[in-house]
Every structure is written in structure tokens, then in C-alpha cells.
Design a protein around this nucleic acid. Structure first.
Lengths: 242, 242
DNA sequence: GAGTGGTCTAGACCACGAT
DNA sequence: TCGTGGTCTAGACCACTCT
């Protein structure tokens, strides 16, 4: 029933009777028009709001929203997004050392702060296709960190658990993708020609409440082995909303 | 009040009393526990559901969801995402011709189908930094298409309006980003060395209901002029949901 | 059949904007 | 002051799952 009302309202919007910025009829009017109770109507309205069709201003009314069609969504995971199957991950090194400027800035460390640095090489088709560097602030005697060092040869899910325990909720992540000229170290490890370009994907994991950084990772990928596909968010929200 | 209940429930989840897959107390129990009515409690639950904390199974109960932390979101717009300001857009050509294989596949055309092809060069700092190719199915005498040709030297918003009229709602878009070796044509137009790599961003705009393609665009960008930043979706849904 | 979540209702009080 | 949307309530019926 509330879904039917949603469709009705969508029609009046899309069919052009209403344009962005226009006000919808008041809720009491719409209750009569569609023959539903207030709560039911409001359920419809909030669904429309979630789908980006409308927004409401307390004391004034509900308005048609200009749709934001420039938002995209994608799924990314360091090991699952390469263009060919990962068949081996090799642990290169686990070190505790002074952070570089880049790492210091991103992890908001003190000057000369120390970090745990885990370096891994990702193989596909017997070839090294990606180099992964995970930096975590080093806090001596923290079980999490010590564990992280001990088990650093395991990757992926286990990695996350070790780093954050049960804190899988309440995290925000930020990803930056660009193309950079590979430095000597990367060229050697990925066995590519000097001066070649590679993808650089940096991933920063932060706490959601105060944005304090937990890890800062760099992922260098041979450019033929990565591409990204993103889509406009689904409208399927309908099923999730209530 | 319902927000307070949300916080309460989050606590019981995050503090580890509940793990993914576990069932929450029944709604009637929680009503008593938090001293709220059914509708209020359900408002809290649907908020939690939207934020990805829980899901519910009719006839059984509400369950803690394993958070999907691999979803990212970003905003993209052909002209607003370059690393430097766009100061000029030059229309190179508007042609009606037989579609290439790639275009035919993506627009689901008949064999030897014809398309309107609009080609533009994007300038920044007096340099050509990106080449844009927009393909739309050619349907003779369709006002939309004819207008598109007439006004093809205008870009961005106007472009969208001409192509889709009031249909700004109900569209889905798909983006693919990769790095490819520039062909001769691109090298000339962007004045880069032969064999250099460029970003290739393809954008396919479809109708949301039947996924029928409307336009298929290719965007070639000099690799120094583009990078992408994406974030985990906000939890701010709270404000949007009701 | 008992318990669960999904939906809907009629009525109430509030904070807010416009006048 | 009046109309608007935001919130909350108590009670009802339904379809579903489990035993």
C-alpha cells in the first residue's frame, strides 16, 4: 500500500507536474488524496526521501529534489579486484621503523613516530603483479600490534581482525587511486621496466567517530592488472528501508 | 528518543555482546527494555538496518549483520574531477556515422547502426588535457537528437537536459576506469608522446527500469590530470531516513 | 498454536515557519 | 495564530516460522 503511494507520487513528479524545488501537497491533503493514514503516507515519503526524490523542511513542506546523478558506488578489496586471480601472497618484510613524511602525515604521528610496516607481494600467473605496504602506528606491548607482527604472513580477513579486533563496526575508509611513475624499489619488486607507470591505491582506515587513523596502506599494481567499475547506487533501498 | 534507542542497541552490538549472525531480542522484549512503543522501536531498528548494522527476517527475528566495509562512494563528473580547473571546452566534431563494434555493443544497436558522435577537447592551463567522445543512438527526426547536434558545443548540464529532457530521474550510470595505451588519434589531440598511457573512463547511461542504454561516452585523460578519491558511505543516513 | 516481524490506523503533542 | 512536518503511542490484523 505504501509502495503504491510511492509510485503515485513518483508519477506526479516524473510526469513533469512537479519540477525540482516545487513543493508537494501537504501531508494532510495527500492523506485524503491517497486514502491512507498519516503514518503510512509518511512511510512513503521517507522512502522517496531515501531514494533521493524529495526532501522535507520542517514547518514548510516536502519538496522535489534535484537528483544527484554524479554519485557512484563500487566494491574494492585489495585482493579481489585485480583483473586476474591472486594465487599467492608472499610476505616480504615486517619491520618497525621511523615513519616517512607521507606516513606520518596520514597517521597523524608525532615527529619521528614509529610504525609497523608490513610488506607483501601479490602473485598472479606466477608473476608479481602488486606490492602492498601496510603501515600501522607502533605502540609497544599492544597485543594487537604484536599479534599483527606475528601473524603478518596471513592476509585479508585475518589481517583486519588482528588490527581491529571486534571493531569491524564504526570504521571509515578512504581510498585514493592514481597513476604514478614507479620508483626503483617498485620496479625491481614487480619486475617492470624502469620509469613505467603503475596504479597507486592508498587506503586509509579511520575510526568513524573521531576520524583518528588506524592504518595507512599503499598498494602498487601493474597497470594492466587493474580497472575499476562503479555504478550509480541502486534504488533497491525500498527493501532495506523498512 | 528513537535515536537514543539506536545508540543503546549499537552499544550492545559493538561492545561484543552480539556478533554477526546473532539474533537480537524480540521486538516486544525490546519495547519493554527501552520503554518505547512498537513503532518507535521499529523506527530505531530500520535506522540500524539502513546503517548496515542489522537485517530482519520475517517470522524469525532481527539479526546482527556482518558489516560490508568494502563499499566505497565517490562523486564524478567529466568536467569537475580533473586535477586542474577546466578553462575551455572546444567542440571538435559532431558526426552521424556507423557505430564501431565497441559502441554497437554498449548501445545495443543493430548491425551497422548509426550514432551521433560528439567529440570535445577539454583544456586546462592552455593545454589539451582530455578528449571526450559522446555517442548517442541516431534516430532521425527525433527532436532530442537534432537539438543535441545543434547545441553540441554547450557542455555539461545543458548536455544532459538536451539528451534526456525531464528524465533526470530514473537513470542509472555505469563507469569504468582503466589505463590504456593512447592510440595515434588521441596522442595527436592531447599532444602526448606516441605510446604513452592515458586514463580511459567510459560512462554508460541507462534507463533505470529496463537498463536500455541511452549514451555511451569515452573520456581520455592525460594521466597526470586525474585521480580518484572514494570514501565509505556516511552514516549520516540518520538525518535522511525519517 | 504461539511467537515473530510487516503493515496500517486514529489520535495526540511538539517545534517550527509564515502571517 | 494557524498550518506544516517530526515524533510517539496503543491497538489491530496479517503472513510467516517454528514446534
Amino acid at each position: 500500500m505504501y509502495l503504491a503511494v510511492v509510485e503515485e507520487i513518483k508519477k506526479t513528479i516524473v510526469s513533469g507536474h512537479l519540477s525540482p524545488g516545487d513543493m508537494l501537497k501537504s501531508e494532510s491533503e495527500m492523506m485524503k488524496e491517497y486514502g491512507v493514514s498519516r503514518m503510512t503516507l509518511r512511510k512513503s515519503l521517507s522512502l522517496l526521501s531515501n531514494q533521493g526524490y524529495i526532501y522535507s523542511v520542517p514547518g514548510k513542506g516536502n519538496f522535489v529534489k534535484k537528483p544527484d546523478t554524479d554519485i557512484y558506488q563500487f566494491r574494492f578489496n585489495r585482493y579481489d579486484n585485480l583483473l586476474s586471480k591472486v594465487d599467492r601472497i608472499k610476505l616480504l618484510a615486517v619491520t618497525v621503523n621511523t615513519a616517512s613524511k607521507d606516513v606520518t602525515d596520514n597517521l597523524l604521528l608525532q615527529e619521528n613516530g614509529r610504525v609497523v610496516r608490513v610488506e607483501r607481494l601479490v602473485y598472479s600467473d606466477e608473476q608479481a603483479v602488486a606490492l602492498e605496504i601496510v603501515n600501522t602506528q607502533y605502540i609497544p606491548n599492544t597485543p594487537v600490534v604484536e599479534d599483527r607482527i606475528n601473524f603478518a604472513n596471513y592476509a585479508n580477513d585475518l589481517d583486519k581482525k588482528l588490527a581491529f579486533g571486534k571493531e569491524t563496526f564504526g570504521l571509515t575508509k578512504e581510498l585514493t587511486i592514481k597513476v604514478v611513475r614507479a620508483d626503483e624499489d617498485i620496479c625491481t619488486k614487480l619486475s617492470i621496466a624502469p620509469g613505467e607507470d603503475v596504479f597507486e591505491i592508498s587506503e586509509k582506515i579511520m575510526k568513524q567517530d573521531d576520524y583518528s587513523p588506524l592504518t595507512y596502506s599503499l598498494f602498487y599494481i601493474r597497470k594492466e592488472y587493474f580497472m575499476l567499475t562503479a555504478k550509480t547506487p541502486e534504488e533497491d533501498a525500498s527493501k532495506k528501508i523498512f
